[in-house]
Structure formats: C-alpha cells, structure tokens
Design a binder for these strands. Sequence first.
DNA 1: GATTGATTAAAACGATCGTATGAAAGAGGT
DNA 2: ACCTCTTTCATACGATCGTTTTAATCAATC
Lengths: 198, 198
Amino acid sequence: MATPDTRTQLLDAAERLFAEHGYSGTSVRAITDRAGANVAAVGYHFGSKAQLMAAVARRAIEPITAAQSAGLDRLLAEGATPAVAELVEAFAGPMFDAMPAGDPSGARRSRLIVTILTDPAEETRAWSGPAEQSVQERFAAAFRLTLPDLSGDELFFRMRGVLAVTAVDRVSPAEGQAARHFAMTFLSAAMGAPPTRI
Amino acid sequence: MATPDTRTQLLDAAERLFAEHGYSGTSVRAITDRAGANVAAVGYHFGSKAQLMAAVARRAIEPITAAQSAGLDRLLAEGATPAVAELVEAFAGPMFDAMPAGDPSGARRSRLIVTILTDPAEETRAWSGPAEQSVQERFAAAFRLTLPDLSGDELFFRMRGVLAVTAVDRVSPAEGQAARHFAMTFLSAAMGAPPTRI
DNA sequence: GATTGATTAAAACGATCGTATGAAAGAGGT
DNA sequence: ACCTCTTTCATACGATCGTTTTAATCAATC
C-alpha cells in the first residue's frame, strides 16, 4: 500500500502530537489535520479520542514489553542467577531501542513512552496494560533472587526509579547510544547498591 | 489574616490542580471554583492563566533552590572536597523536604515539581528560572571536583537522572521518610558509579 | 458622609473543544 | 447496472475554553 490507510495515519499523527503536547494538549482536529483526514474519522475508527490514544499507547508499549519479556527469558534460560547489570539491561534496555514507525530519529518513541508514563491526564493512567504489569512482576521476582537482602519496599522504589531514569533522555545533550550506556552504568550501580539501613 | 487573600487562594488551588492534571488539563474555572473566587480573578491578579501557573512554579521552586544552595554552601565551607553522598543529599534532599502549604502529606509539592519539569505544554518550558539553573551549575562544578573522571555529558545525564528519581511517585508502599532514605542510597550509588567506557 | 482606589462579581465575547449525524463517495460481488 | 457494505465528507451540536468588559462592592481617607 503506497498510501497507508486512514487508521494508520491517525495513529501516526496522534502518536507524534501526543508525544509533543500530551493528551490534553492535543486536539482531535490537530490529529485529523495532520493525518489528512476528516474530524469524524477518529470517531469512526476508534470511537473517541481517549480510545485512539489508548491504541497509540498500546502500539508503542507492546514491542517494549515483548522485548523485556524475551530478555528476561533469555537470562533465566541460562540457569544461573542473573547479575544485576544483566537484569537492568534486559529491563531498561528496550526503552532505548524502541523506534517510531518510519522515523529514523529514535528519540520520539521513547519520548512517547515517557509522556505516557508521566502524563497527568486521567485517560492515560490505565494505559499500562496487564502485559506490562505482569512483566514487571516477573522482573521483580528476578531482582529479588539477585538481591535477596533488599526489602520489598525498597525493591519497588528502585524499580520505579529505573523507569524514571529511562525518561530523562529527552532533554539530554547526550543523545542516542551514549544515553543508553550512561543509563546502564547509572542504573546498574543504583540497583545493586546495598540495602538501606533504616 | 484568618482568611487568606484571593491571590494566595488562587495560587494554592492552581498548585494542586496543576500538579494533578497538568497545565492543559487544568481550566481557569476549575481553579477559581476551588479558590472560591470569580473567574475574572485570575485575569485581575495574574494577567493570564500562563502567568498564574508561572507564579505557582516560582513559589514552589524557590525554597527548594534556596535549600539546595545553602546545603552546598555548608559543604563547601568545610574545606575538603565533599563526598558523593553529601553532594547527593544536598542536591536531592530538599526535594523530599518541600512541603505544600498546609498539607501534611509531603508528596504533593514534589509531584508539582515533577509535573513542571515534565509537562508537555509549551507554557511550562521556560519555568525553571535562572536561580534554579545557576544552582544546578554550581552543583555540576562541585560534582566535577568529586568525580573528576566523569565526562561533562555523563555528569549532565546523571544529574538529570537524580532529578528524575526524586520525581518517583511516593504514593507507593514506601512512603514518607523511607522513600527519602531509599532515594539517597539509590542515588549515591548511581552518582558515584565509575565512568562509562564507550 | 462623600470620594477615591482596590477588589470582586456577573455576564458575555469569540474560539475551540469532543462528538454525532446524515448524506456522498468508493469498492466488490452478482 | 444494481445492490451492499465500508469509508469519507461537510456540517452542526452543546459544552467548555481563556479572556474581557462593565458594574457592584469594599476599605480607607478626608
């Protein structure tokens, strides 16, 4: 198909605009204009703006969750308890690899993920699907084995911290692969720190 | 004044709503309703919605910047090159201490800071004032002395990472002071990690 | 008490929001 | 050519958006 169908055009346009301006800051008309479609196309293809945005989020998050899960499978298949750095790589790495559909500048898709995770609109709150949640629980279990002295609360905090740090790449001058390497160093050290004595 | 003036009421209401729903997601009428004021009060006291939100950001950031600066002064006055953990404490600590006006749950003000830093609306882009910037540069210089082997790019990435982690939502099981201690452990290890070999 | 200046209130402005409607256009099978 | 199903279109709905205007209210000074 030389000309992508309207549905895909809408997804692409919504993805870019949402990443740039957030949910509330993106209007349906801005999306349809960029997609070269009619205003009613959103209602027809997705039902509502919220459902369109949910589809955008699903399309962006799915490959990341899959890569995370596959990476963890690979580590666990080796038999031995994985090292902290290996788990961090498998968990946070896919966030840096994710590329937008036909866009060579790899920055945008990760920016979208960040926006999804931090957007204050209620509609985006539930967008991290059950697959995302289950993969995070699997990683939590793996981390618990590698870091047996860590309390459940502190492990939870650290995993949230990892996600937060993967969100910083959007303003940093250290772009592309450098940010990825910096993040791995940063996060492996943080994740592997001895437990806090309270 | 048993009854705070309208101006302050507007700031308080706008602070809470903005932290919860972001800039685009907060309407002027929602602010004035919560403040018990008229719609026109925003225009009268602040000129516009954008200027009101800028005032909110200024009021929230200012004490944090001051505390960061004072902490750094205290460390530098001791003469010796500060340890990584000391710098992290002085830099990230104030984010945890900041309390919203009249609100015992210390989570909200920091949520506001995070929203300011990550909000996709254009109006919030320039809200980190010159004081904030200069204090970050002072910390960058101090970190450079403590971590002389770190490149400028990686140091910049790590400092952004510290800010990102302080943004982690603390509605989690690990609340209050526990989160602060967890963060210090996490961030000191991350900040003090050996440089990345690329 | 009248006068002045600061603040608040009610109402309306045009613009834009998300969504729904019904007709027009297109595609494919018979 | 005809019918059927899908998709696109122009258009309009009511609601809400940020802002402005004009009048009413208040506090303080003379």
